[in-house]
Amino acid sequence: MIDRDAVFVLGAQDPEMREIERVATAAGHAVFHAASNGLRCTPQTAYEADGVARAGADGIVRAAVLRPTAPTVWVECRIAGREPLVRVDHHHPGDPGFTAPPADYLRGSSLGQVLALLAREPTPTQRLLAASDHCLTAAYQGECPGVDPDELLFLRASWKAFIAKRSLTEVMTGILDAARHVKQRFDHASGEARFLDPTRVPMDLAEGAAYAGVPVRYRAWLPDGQVKEMFKGGTPEAVEAFMAAHEAAGRQVYGNPHRGYGGAYWPG
């Protein structure tokens, strides 16, 4: 439990972070967003923030000031020159939820950690959000207590349809089609399905692979010209091997073997 004057500073936006913002605000806490050069942070810049901002209901991001003495809760972010009262995260070694297994997804997920700080019991929807963010493939395979895979699919497909302005039918079809593709391409020797041509990656590949429970390796072009290679749904040993191979090649690497994912950036 934390004091009412604690201020939450949130990292990059996603469905889990939206719910964290709603919960913290409803509990009476001030909420800011980590910012870099006055812009709300992305997943790539959230741990290199130099200040905070407020994102209004109108979508406009406005500059803000965080009092030097304010007790802060950092959620999936870091701010240069500051130290938090509490760190909520599960992305890096040493984070509170880094090693949490799927069965303990509430302790592992950032949403679950925030709910514990606020002494709140999770709702069914919050369980879905927490499990999907912490260990999506495991959640789809029924490894997270209190999480129904079919309800999870509907929730995530609805969100994807809303964000991408696609119909729910189109998204559901895309996910199921991608699941069929990864099963067909699964290679027993490597233990994964590979889609290494960024121009031929199915739209809903990552979601379909998680739903199918098949480890997948794929590449995507980023706006700045870099190629990002991702590996999802693998065992801890497979993720560690993936990350080690890219590190040995001198590439920037991220990931969490305990959560079954890794990624690497190829310079443009």
Rank of each mutant, 00 (worst) to 15 (best):
N37S: 04
E247W: 07
V253S: 00
H258V: 09
A193V: 12
G255N: 10
F32N: 01
T99W: 03
S36Q: 11
A249R: 07
T99D: 04
Y47V: 11
A27R: 03
K228H: 14
T69I: 08
H92N: 15
G11N: 02
S190E: 09
A164S: 08
E229Q: 09
T123S: 13
A63R: 08
A164T: 14
Y265V: 15
G225H: 05
H181L: 10
A238G: 08
R194N: 08
G38Y: 05
K228P: 02
P124M: 11
A27D: 07
E83C: 03
E76A: 09
Q252L: 14
R54P: 02
E207G: 02
H92R: 15
E207D: 12
A161R: 04
A179D: 02
G208R: 08
D204H: 13
G108E: 11
R40E: 13
I175Q: 01
E192V: 10
G262S: 05
F231Y: 05
M172C: 13
Y140S: 08
Y105E: 03
I20V: 13
H258K: 10
I60Y: 03
E19C: 01
C144Y: 12
A63E: 05
A244K: 10
D177Q: 09
D58A: 12
W159H: 13
R219V: 15
D3Y: 10
D197P: 07
G225E: 11
R259I: 13
K232W: 12
A26E: 06
A193D: 04
D50S: 05
V239I: 15
T99S: 07
A119P: 04
R78T: 15
E151P: 01
Y261T: 10
R4E: 06
Q252A: 15
Q44P: 04
D177Y: 07
A80L: 13
L115Y: 09
A212M: 04
Q44F: 15
L129D: 08
V201F: 04
I20S: 07
L117G: 00
V31T: 08
L66M: 02
V216W: 04
V73C: 00
A80T: 14
N256R: 07
L152W: 01
